[in-house]
Simulated assay, not measured.
Amino acid sequence: MFNEDRSVTRGRKFDQVLEGARRVFLRDGYEGASVDDIAREASVSKATLYSYFPDKKLMFTVVFRDELERAKIDRDALLRMELPIDEVLRFTGHMIASHTVSEFGSRILRLAIAEAQRFPELAVEYYEIGPAALQRTLERQIRSWQKDGMISTEVVDLNMAADSFVQLCAVRVRDPMMLLGREHVDDATIRRAVDNAVRVFLRAYGTQAALRLID
């Protein structure tokens, strides 16, 4: 994989340039962002900008990877929770839905989708660091619940079960924002979506012991 650190010069104004580039790329996308706009946003000359980044593509790559680091959710938090399955699912679901519709989460998702063809390796990184990593963590938790008698032993594809829960939490709140242009999803809507996701998930995969927690 391409390693941008071999081509990027880091100096006194590096963070200033990176922040200016971040604001422009998140606002205008790769195609709509000009070097002049980035230099203006960062309050530096074009010569200073080019002293750190030799081209716009490299600059976008560094910005996007920096955003991926900022976007990481504390996935392991759900593995440390010693609470009933329905409460852990509600906590996890609220975390997923809230991040999905946050200004930051929605912008990085839009950027990943818009630039997937131009930067396929970054789209893969986004998927692996975000959705795939979350699914794997949730899969481990579901396996633990299965051993505890809360998830049916008939459930074989635990990764699919994990993905089902993630999608149940995210789609209901994500699509209105992404497709209908809504700028805000209130907490009540998020809670309704998550409560529904928990009930659907446990009715599909849970044992009678788990179902008693929501009935």
Rank of each mutant, 00 (worst) to 15 (best):
R118V: 05
Y127Q: 13
I129N: 05
S102T: 15
F53W: 08
Y127R: 13
G29F: 05
P120R: 02
Y52F: 10
E139R: 11
F64R: 00
E115W: 04
Q141W: 07
S102M: 11
D36F: 13
L158G: 00
D74T: 04
H99P: 09
E19Q: 15
L111P: 01
A47R: 12
V17H: 06
R27I: 09
I73H: 05
M59E: 00
I113M: 12
Y50H: 11
T61Q: 06
L122Q: 01
R118W: 08
E121Q: 04
D148T: 06
V124I: 09
N159V: 04
R65D: 04
A116N: 10
V155A: 01
T100G: 03
Y127W: 14
Q117G: 14
E82V: 12
M95R: 14
T61S: 08
V155I: 03
F91L: 15
S106F: 13
K57V: 02
S45C: 07
F60V: 02
V62L: 03
L138I: 02
Y126R: 01
G32T: 14
L79Q: 10
T61N: 04
F53Q: 06
E67P: 06
T48R: 08
A39M: 01
F25R: 06
K57Q: 10
I38R: 02
T92M: 06
D55T: 05
S152M: 02
A71I: 01
D74C: 03
R136H: 09
S144R: 14
T137H: 05
M95F: 12
R23K: 15
A39K: 01
G29P: 07
A33W: 01
T61K: 03
D76M: 15
L158V: 04
S102V: 11
V155P: 00
S144M: 11
F104Y: 15
S152Y: 00
L134V: 13
R118P: 08
S51T: 12
K72E: 13
